[in-house]
Simulated scan of single mutants.
Amino acid sequence: MFSHLFIGITDFDRAFAFYSALMDCLGIEPRFCDRSRPWAGWQTAGGPRPLFLIGRPYDQQPHQPGNGQMAAFMAERRAQVDEAHRLALAHGGTSEGLPGLRPEYHPHYYGTYFRDPDGNKLCVVCHAPED
């Protein structure tokens, strides 16, 4: 469905450390990193699409997180959701919802919500029943 998703950031090194840890936890592979631009991208195994990208806004204006916007990443196991939340906080993120079941979405929805160091809202969710 998606070609790519681009998230604006302000401090590339800080954002790269945050997203590298998160993508590694989820098994999403690095595709490129160009510090001169600066931007970086990751893809799921067997890519090349969809891509997840971070970088400074193209118009060179300061990054501003959107209100009501969120990128959600799928985890295969609930333990990955827990680990993603832990890593997000360890790398400068802030919690927007601890890992747990959210049966109002569906009986097996196990997710967590957090913001990256630039204030972008993210979710990591597992839709599978408990192992």
Rank of each mutant, 00 (worst) to 15 (best):
R86D: 02
G55E: 05
L89P: 07
H91L: 02
P50M: 13
P48F: 02
R49A: 05
M70C: 14
G47S: 09
F73M: 12
Q69H: 13
G47W: 00
E83Y: 01
G68V: 08
R56S: 03
M74G: 09
G66F: 11
H85W: 11
G55K: 09
Q80W: 04
Q61K: 15
D82F: 05
V81D: 00
R86W: 05
A72Y: 08
H91V: 01
E76L: 14
D59I: 06
P48G: 08
R49V: 04
A90R: 13
G55S: 07
G47F: 00
A75T: 10
A71I: 13
L51Q: 15
R56K: 13
A88H: 04
Q61V: 03
L87D: 07
L89W: 02
H63Q: 15
I54G: 11
A75Y: 08
L53K: 15
E76V: 14
L89Y: 04
G68W: 14
P65T: 01
A45V: 15
L51I: 14
P65N: 03
V81Y: 00
P65C: 00
F52M: 12
A90H: 04
H91M: 02
G47Y: 00
E76M: 12
A88F: 06
F52C: 07
Q69E: 13
H85V: 01
R77K: 13
G47N: 01
A71W: 00
H63R: 13
A90L: 02
Q64N: 10
Q80E: 13
L87F: 01
H85C: 03
A75N: 07
G68D: 06
P48E: 08
P50H: 14
A84Q: 05
N67Y: 12
R56F: 08
L89S: 07
P48V: 08
A71H: 03
G68N: 10
L53G: 06
H63A: 11
G68I: 10
L87Q: 14
G66I: 12
F73P: 05
P50R: 14
H63P: 03
A90D: 12
D59G: 04
Q64P: 04
Y58G: 08
Q61C: 01
Q69D: 10
R86Y: 06
P65V: 00
A88S: 12
H85S: 05
